[in-house]
């Protein structure tokens, strides 16, 4: 009889560094989801008018607990962006003539667009 080795269904991702990184990447979704809910909350607050927006949304963000959560969320969101751009060339390779465009060029183009877009948004938001 052939022998089947047991596989842990709950701790496998700790066995290999690459598995662990993968699991961390998957769990960034928790913070992506939380921030999406925050945006939804903000939209609802804007729809409810001036007073509600400040009282039930913007001022809530300034509490110490919320600030900590926002910091963590922001860091995870940046990590998600970098991890996502890193693997995009694998999912969408571009062939020019015979050769493939190097993955670094595709990822680099993403970074350029990302930075320019972010600067434009920061400008219009009045940050600078």
């Amino acid at each position: 009889m052939a022998y089947v080795r047991p596989v842990s269904k709950t701790t496998w991702y700790l066995k290999d560094r690459n598995y662990t990184i993968h699991m961390i990447n998957e769990l960034t979704s928790v913070f992506i989801g939380l921030y999406a809910l925050l945006l939804l909350w903000g939209i609802g607050a804007v729809a409810s008018g001036d007073k509600a927006y400040y009282q039930f949304f913007l001022e809530c963000l300034t509490s110490p607990g919320m600030l900590v959560l926002l910091w963590v969320t922001t860091i995870v969101i940046f990590y998600h962006a970098i991890a996502w751009f890193k693997v995009t060339p694998k999912a969408m390779p571009i062939q020019k003539g015979e050769a493939f465009v190097p993955g670094g060029v595709i990822a680099g183009a993403h970074y350029v667009i990302w930075v320019l877009f972010s600067l434009v948004v920061l400008y219009f938001a009045g940050v600078f």
Binding site: D16, N18, Y19, H22, E26, V87, K90
Partner: peptide, 16 residues
């Protein structure tokens, strides 16, 4: 497939 990329890391022929 959940895209762990570990197959490509292991592949000795760089099939990716």
């Amino acid at each position: 497939c959940s895209f762990t990329d570990t197959c490509s890391i292991a592949c000795p022929k760089h099939v990716d």
